Simulated scan of single mutants.
Amino acid sequence: MDTALGRRGTVDGGLFKYTLARAETISDNGHVLPPTFGVTTVINFQPTEDGIAAINGDFALTATEVNKVIEALRIGGIEVVELHNHMLADDPHLFYLHYCAVNDAVTLAKALRPALDTTNLAPAK
């Protein structure tokens, strides 16, 4: 999955997860919001059985990224669940797109990659 996503995930309880910061600084009313404040893209893999995983999470997106990510997810067979925003005065203004799917974990990671590639993520460490 790490290879398919080009990032390193971590084990968190029963999940294998990725928390991906955006490249630009996010602020709200002039205050910088660090990635730990939830202005990130999150991918959660939960194993089920026989190598199958359930994924869910959310993308933190600018307005110009929303439709590109929706299209990439749909092509990859990943269901878009919800699109909303959290703040009113964030800069840049972010939208949060929630998704889910069940399939082989590597297949899901490969399906997520084109959506990630359309966003302005900070470089992988």
Rank of each mutant, 00 (worst) to 15 (best):
E71L: 10
L112S: 11
I26V: 14
T10A: 15
Q46F: 03
V81C: 05
F16H: 10
E79Y: 10
D117C: 07
D117R: 12
E79M: 12
I52Q: 13
G76C: 12
A101R: 11
P47K: 02
N103W: 11
V66S: 01
T40Y: 00
L94W: 05
V11A: 10
C100T: 14
L97G: 07
T19E: 02
S27V: 07
L20W: 00
A101P: 12
D58W: 13
P114V: 08
H93S: 10
A53S: 15
K68P: 02
L121S: 04
N103V: 07
L112V: 11
A105F: 14
L15F: 12
E49N: 07
L33N: 01
L94N: 08
V106C: 04
N56A: 09
L20N: 01
N44C: 06
G38Y: 01
D12C: 08
N29Y: 08
L83K: 12
V81L: 14
G77H: 04
L15K: 09
V106D: 15
L97I: 07
D28M: 03
Y18L: 01
V66P: 04
A72T: 03
A101E: 05
V102W: 09
L83N: 15
Y18K: 00
D28P: 00
N56E: 09
G51V: 08
R113C: 08
D104E: 14
I52C: 02
T107F: 06
C100W: 07
G76L: 10
V32N: 13
A60F: 01
V42L: 04
F95P: 08
L33I: 07
L73C: 03
G6N: 14
A54I: 02
D91F: 06
R8N: 04
K110G: 07
L108C: 08
T62C: 03
D104M: 10
N67I: 00
R113Y: 05
T107A: 15
P123R: 04
D117P: 12
V102R: 14
K68L: 11
V11Y: 03
H93R: 10
L15M: 09
A23V: 03
A4K: 15
V11L: 08
H86L: 15
L116C: 05
P92H: 03
T119Q: 03
F59Q: 01
L15H: 09
V42G: 00
F16T: 06
A89M: 13
N29W: 05
V69M: 00
G76A: 09
H31Q: 11
A109N: 05
